[in-house]
């Protein structure tokens, strides 16, 4: 249990752990510090629910808003509109101790393990920091928890690692320390933003397996943000595909990979081939153009300028709602109408 006990903890044990409703995170662009010249709509109307103990993946290209979504969930950005409801409590209403409880409840694993660790602190200090911030003043207690969590991320014996500085560790070890830091406050949810994209291929699987094992053992909710569809299959239960600030398709992993519904998802899958010598002799089908500007997104469906199946008079006019073309499989595309 977290060190900070609060009333918010008691509520809402039954519903989803995290519910996001109509979430918008816009960044205002200002000229000379005050003149508003527009907004970057990084997250632009996102709804979803995450159950306890579920592992989901948010997949999308850079600039699709997946990292902004992660930061909004972590409380690092204020939502422009909409709600994040955690454990039945609106995060926007949390103050003081309740907010600290929320921060302890959501762990954060970042992309660049070296950058994620302060270079001037040793591992003991790095892992002590969250505990100190959350009022655990007993050195003995901190040491106990640090050793426990190091053991959990398989960095043992702890003695060999505690006094090291980040630059003395390998990339994989660094990422384990980052994961240990996310776990040390005993969160109920972990948000991992591209946790392996900076690591070598041989280490990636190891880190992903570790995350998956901890997620199962601790019954954590894991939100796994990635641009790499091929790693998702084994490490998530559900996939959300994001494009230009919105979720365009969501489904269980196998369902989505087997029957992609949205034209964007289809083109993403077409661009990724499993390793094969024949790949070198094939041209991949790639939709033309580039993702739209989030400052001036196109009207209607945001994928319509690149979509091979765009329906004139429909797609560029109205926003597609979430259709459910197959059971448990939702896709925001007018083709399903």
């Amino acid at each position: 249990m977290s060190a900070v006990r609060s009333s918010a903890q008691a509520r809402g044990r039954d519903g989803p752990l995290l519910a996001v409703q109509d979430l918008h995170t816009w960044f205002e662009l200002r000229q000379w510090g005050f003149l508003r010249v527009g907004s970057v709509r990084a997250v632009d109307g996102v709804d979803f629910e995450l159950a306890r103990g579920e592992a989901v993946a948010f997949v999308g290209e850079s600039g699709c808003g997946k990292s902004s979504l992660a930061r909004t969930l972590l409380g690092l950005h204020k939502p422009t509109r909409g709600e994040v409801v955690f454990n039945g409590t609106r995060v926007a209403d949390l103050r003081g101790k309740d907010m600290q409880w929320y921060r302890a409840s959501v762990g954060y694993v970042q992309q660049d393990p070296y950058g994620a660790l302060p270079p001037f602190m040793d591992v003991r200090r790095i892992l002590s920091e969250p505990l100190i911030v959350h009022g655990i003043s007993s050195r003995v207690e901190r040491e106990r928890r640090i050793r426990q969590v190091l053991d959990e991320v398989r960095l043992s014996p702890a003695e060999t690692i505690l006094d090291k500085f980040p630059h003395m560790l390998s990339g994989g070890q660094q990422q384990r320390v980052v994961i240990a830091r996310a776990l040390v406050l005993e969160p109920s949810m972990i948000i991992a933003d591209e946790p392996v994209s900076m690591l070598d291929a041989s280490v990636r699987v190891e880190i992903l397996n570790l995350l998956r094992r901890i997620q199962t053992e601790r019954e954590l909710t894991l939100a796994f943000i990635t641009h790499d569809l091929s790693t998702v299959r084994h490490f998530a239960d559900r996939i959300f595909v994001m494009y230009a600030g919105r979720i365009v398709e969501q489904a269980p992993v196998d369902e989505l990979l087997a029957h992609p519904q949205h034209p964007y998802t289809q083109s993403l899958l077409a661009a990724i081939a499993d390793v094969d010598a024949a790949n070198a002799r094939q041209q991949r089908e790639v939709p033309g153009g580039e993702p739209p500007s989030l400052l001036h997104p196109p009207p209607g469906c945001r994928f319509h300028p690149r979509c091979p199946h765009a329906i004139a008079g429909v797609c560029e006019v109205d926003d597609p709602p979430q259709f459910e073309p197959r059971r448990g499989h939702r896709s925001a595309c007018w083709l399903h109408r």
Binding site: G115, P118, H134, R181
Partner: peptide
Amino acid sequence: QAPYIEAARAYGASNSRIIMRY
């Protein structure tokens, strides 16, 4: 902009702690 500072915010480090310690 360093990720480790973002991480510190995420676990709730105060402004003064971030300035002085990070």
